[in-house]
Each structure stands twice: as C-alpha cells, then as structure tokens.
Design a protein around this nucleic acid. Structure first.
Lengths: 327, 327
DNA sequence: TTGTAGGCGTTATCAT
DNA sequence: ATGATAACGCCTACAA
C-alpha cells in the first residue's frame, strides 16, 4: 500500500501541493473554499504528514535528546517529569537514552543525536567525554549539562544543585545534634561533581567543628553500602554517626541497620542523608538529618533554559543552582 | 556554517557521491585506494551522516516508540531497562513518551509516532484509544501492547502478567495464613486489565474459601490508600486482613500503619500485596504474602518479540504471559 | 491567492 | 568498480 502524500491530496482537492502544504502548516494565505477542499481530501485519503521529509526540508527535527545514566533512578525520573511537564512546544518530542554508566555508550548516544539533528541535548554525564562534548559545542549544538558538571574550556550551561553548600549544612546540623561522637563519612563518585563537591562540603563542616572522621567509599550504591555497615559496627561497636552523601547509600545503610531486629542500632548509629529515601518518615529515628532535593524543579529550569536557547535568547553561558533544604 | 554533506566529501576525495555512500554504508564495491581517500576526506571535513535524509530515502527511521503512563514508576523503568538491554540492533533508538494517564495525550503520541515513521511501538495503554489503535494496526504499524491489554478485534500482540492467576494464588496463600478474619480487598483501575483481572483472581479465591470481604477502591494510588486506612480501622477496630492489589497502594497502607508508633497495627492488620515495595524485608511483619513481579523479564520478551516483527518473523498475533511468583 | 519548480542530503538503479 | 541521476516527501521562493 503506497503512502499517501501531499501530491495525492493536491490532486484530489484540485489544488497545488503548495496549497496543501499551506493548509497543513497553517501558514500563508488560502481561501476558505480551498481550505475546506483540502481538509476533506485529507480526511478521505487519511493523509498525515511525513515528519522525516518535513524535517529534511526545514533542517530541523523537533527532537530533544536526553542522556541519563540509568532509567531505574527516581531522581532522574522526577527530573524528566519536570522537563516534560514544563516544555510547552508541543511539536517537540523527547529521545531518552541511557548511557548505562558507560562513557563509550554516552559518546555513541551523543553522536547519534548529532546525526539525527536533535535541536537540543540534555546531558547527565557519566564523565570522560569532555573533548567530544566540546567538539559538539563548537558545531553549535545546544547542550545543557544537568546535575553533573562537565568541566570544559569556554563553559557549558549547567543546572544542578549546590552540593557543597547542602552537604556543609547537612553535616553542620548533624554534628550539632550528635556531639562527642565518632563519625563515618560515606561518599563515592569522587570523579564526578556530585561526588567530590559533597565531600568537600561535608569535610568543611567537619573541620570547622574539629571533628575527626573515617572516610568510606560506598560508590553511591545501596548494596555496597549495606555490606559496609558491619565494618562500621566492628570499628565503632559503641556507635557512631554516619553521614551518607547519597540517598541510595542511605537506603543500604537503613537496610543493614534493620537487618537484626533484636539489636537496636537506631540510637547508636544515627544517620545524616544527602537525599530522601522511601518511607523516610518511618525511619525518622534513624535518619535525623537530611537534604531535600528538588529534581522536578531542576527539570523545570532545564526546560525553560532549553526553550530560551531554541528561541535564540541564550547568548551567555549560564550556571544555575537550585537550592536544597535541610530537614 | 554550512553543513558538510556527502557531496563535499566526494569532491574532496575526487570520487562520486555514490562511492562515498558505499564507503559510509559499507555496501557495494569500492577499491581500497578509493576507500582510503574517502575516509580521510571524511575525517578532514568532519563529516557525519544526516540521518533524516537517509531515513527519507530509505523510508525508515530506526526509531522504536515507547508509550508509558508516567515516568515515575519503578515497574515501568525496569521494563524499559529490560527492553533496552536486550535490544541488539544498535542502530535503533528509543523515543519514550509519557501519556500522563491521559488518553488524548496517548493518542497524540501515537499520531506523532506514525508521522515519524517509527518502526515499532511498545504501548502501555491508559485505555480508551482502541479504535485509533486499530486504525494504526490496519496500516501495518508494528505495535506490541504490554502489561495492559488492548481489547481489539483481530487481536494485537500482548506481553504481560497473568494477573488473574497471581491474584488468586496470593489471596489463597493469604487466607490460609489468617483464617477467621475479616478481609478488605483494596483494588482499583477496574477499567484496565491490570485492575479487573486482579480483582477477578482475588474474588475467585475469596469465594472458594467462602470468605466475606469489603471492597474498597484505592485507585492504585499511595495517597488515597493511606487515607483509606483510618476508615478500615473504624470499620474493623479489632483488625482485618488487607489484600492490596497493587504495590503503590501497599505503600500507602504501610505508611498509614506506621503513622502511630505506639499503636501496634502490625499484627492486627496483616497485608497481602500484589507487587513488592521498597524495604519489604523490613516490613515483613506487616506484609505476610506478596506477588513478585518480573518487569525486566517482560521487557526482554517485548524486545525479542519486536525484533522478530522487524525481521518479518511474526505473522501470528501473540499473547505471552510471564509467570509471577508468590512469597 | 495560487501554482511551478528547485532543492534539502541521501540512496540505489542503471549505464559505463 | 564507478559515476550520473532520479527519486524519497516536503517546503518555499518566486512568478503569475
């Protein structure tokens, strides 16, 4: 079955393809009479536009590419929701691709985005593709880096959190509530901004309070953190404060704490968490301080920024930090 | 800055565009000498293919469209991961669009997919677009319905769970562990297969055991279910069994149960849950029976099926049910 | 207001 | 093995 094209419609309606195109796109001038004829022809033939052809001609794509490290992450999903909900140009569509925490895969995706003429890219990088990204920027691709900074000469738009500040405030609050304790700092992802910035903030607060601490790497991973907990207990059998710099790690710690029901770890191992976890209110005896994050809000900002860029109102490179709150 | 095209490369390499195309696509016959010339020209000019033009010519798109009701749902994300991980044709790319539980939006998305010539559609429907979907099927669009059935003449591929069976087994197990109790059946989404099939299975088991029950509608929603719980307590102050037919509702119930710490609801309101929740092991005193779901596995099956369809090895309409397990 | 026709960048047929 | 060239379906000067 051959595809119905603008030509078929034109023939049926006894007008030219140009007129059909005008009707379809709602631009230019067409008499009501002709418009009617075209519209009925469209209905009769069941015509719909071929976006590929249209895009080729217009040198556009109406596609926004989004790169995330993984699909199974609530933070990222909230972020995407924020983008989606506030993106008003309805003709656009989102590619979403997962780099699977792999920098080669990330590069592949970006390359594919370039080949498909995407109008904009929203990138949550896994790191390591800086030079390639720079090349893309040079060709005027509209890229916004989100949550994780891309360290690049000349800069790149960035929207994310103030990790340093939030980790600092979290730690300060935590220390004021559990004085005279040993402290474990549970971090990870040091090669990414979300990793080292949080460490920086926490350490700053620890040093200000002259608080000694042990640093452990939980790799922003629930399982690893859960398995680390027994080591913490061995090292500090009388208890210690745990500062978890990511909610996934907090999840692992909480699971470990509740593994042995009879032992009451709640009071002995108070936790500070950068980020909330599910059922946080139920674990309020364990988690006595936490950073609330606003991924949805970040998504909204990303969306606004991208729309500005698409409209050409974005000459300067911009960095925007969304403020977290401490509970 | 003008785009570098195959023509520019041809000129630079002193060959025809046809030869360049052959090199780029690795088909046809080219001498090593010419291949080298073309490849260096490509590097020098920083050429990359224009997928839009290529697609127009080839009448393809290399795009798989996925429609989900919302991004913020772990089940869907696991499903997508399963699809992604097992989809081997690397030249393909996924559009993922959220219908936001809105049937008009779903239709819009499907229409856009059609206009973009997507090669296949994976649809988690919200219901109500049956006739439009049928129209798409008539034009030979490759659509696989997932998790939620699309009731359509002539049938449509479906991959999902055996909701009736799983709900039946869950209920049977639950009743055998809490005999002589009152029971609340917490359901929802009755207009979708995931809603009414689970009710059907649960009711079957209840009737077999001659167990009376009260049906409440929690709309597969955590908040609503959390708010329903006090009503349950009022109605059954001495306790009752709660069969929650969806994990989001279970989440709400668990939250409500743990709201008042002093009241020990755990033993008085045992829960059966269709689907797991986070920290399930911590709540094992509350949730005494549950259905384990395999969204990732469903994704894998969807991916396999779609690849078969793309390869043309899929004449018959297929229904495949992935077996759940009961814990 | 309408129609003609060229071209977007690529692929693929058909000569050579 | 290679090149010339006609599409793919649409948009848009430009002319009428």
């Amino acid at each position: 079955m051959k595809r119905v094209t603008i030509k078929d419609v034109a023939k049926r309606a006894n007008v030219s393809t140009a007129t059909v195109s005008r009707v379809v796109n709602g631009i230019g001038t067409v008499t009501d009479d002709n418009r009617d004829k075209v519209q009925t022809a469209i209905k009769e033939l069941n015509y719909f536009v071929n976006t590929t052809a249209s895009n080729l001609k217009k040198n556009s794509s109406n596609v926004i590419g989004i790169v995330i490290p993984t699909f199974t992450n609530e933070y990222f999903m909230e972020l995407i929701k924020g983008i989606e909900d506030s993106f008003v140009y309805s003709e656009y569509v989102f590619y979403i691709a997962s780099s699977k925490d792999d920098l080669d895969k990330e590069k592949e995706i970006l390359q594919k985005f370039r080949e498909s003429n995407v109008e904009g890219v929203i990138l949550l990088t896994i790191g390591g593709n800086e030079s390639f990204i720079q090349e893309l920027l040079k060709m005027n691709m509209k890229i916004i880096s989100v949550e994780r900074r891309v360290e690049i000469d000349g800069g790149i738009d960035f929207i994310g959190e103030n990790n340093v500040e939030a980790a600092y405030e979290l730690t300060k609050k935590f220390l004021s509530e559990i004085p005279y304790r040993d402290v474990v700092l549970l971090g990870g992802y040091e090669e990414l901004s979300i990793g080292h910035e949080r460490i920086e903030g926490a350490v700053k607060a620890l040093q200000e309070k002259k608080q000694e601490y042990t640093y452990l790497n939980g790799h922003f991973n629930a399982k690893i953190s859960e398995e680390i907990f027994p080591d913490i207990v061995t090292r500090y059998p009388n208890g210690c404060g745990i500062i978890s710099l990511n909610n996934t790690m907090t999840e692992g710690v909480i699971r470990a704490i509740h593994r042995d029901e009879e032992k009451d770890y709640s009071s002995k191992y108070p936790v500070a968490s950068y980020g909330k976890i599910k059922f946080q209110s139920i674990f309020k005896n364990n988690i006595i301080a936490s950073v609330r994050q606003y991924p949805y809000q970040i998504g909204v900002e990303v969306s606004n920024r991208l729309q500005n860029k698409i409209d050409g109102n974005a000459s300067e490179t911009v960095t925007k930090l969304i403020r977290n709150t401490i509970d």
